[in-house]
Amino acid sequence: MSNTPRLSGVIPGEAPNFGTMLGHAPDVLGRFGALYAEFWQGGRVSQSLKEMTRLRNARVTDCGF
């Protein structure tokens, strides 16, 4: 599997990352950020439990990023 980013980033001269690649569609990036922040900041589930599930999901999906 290729490890080369499949899109450029929107910041010239900088290596692309998740955020700068999504920056090609700023509305998508902005609303993704708002949703993701709500996941982390709202609700009754503790942040430590959320972090454990996030890390476990990364392992299960074999996402090293």
Binding site: A25, V28, R31, A34, L35, E38, F39, G42, G43
Partner: peptide, 20 residues
Amino acid sequence: RGELLSKYAQFYATFWRNGH
């Protein structure tokens, strides 16, 4: 979790609305 649903729906709507 109304606020979560609201943010989810707003995000989801972006795909259909941004015209790309």
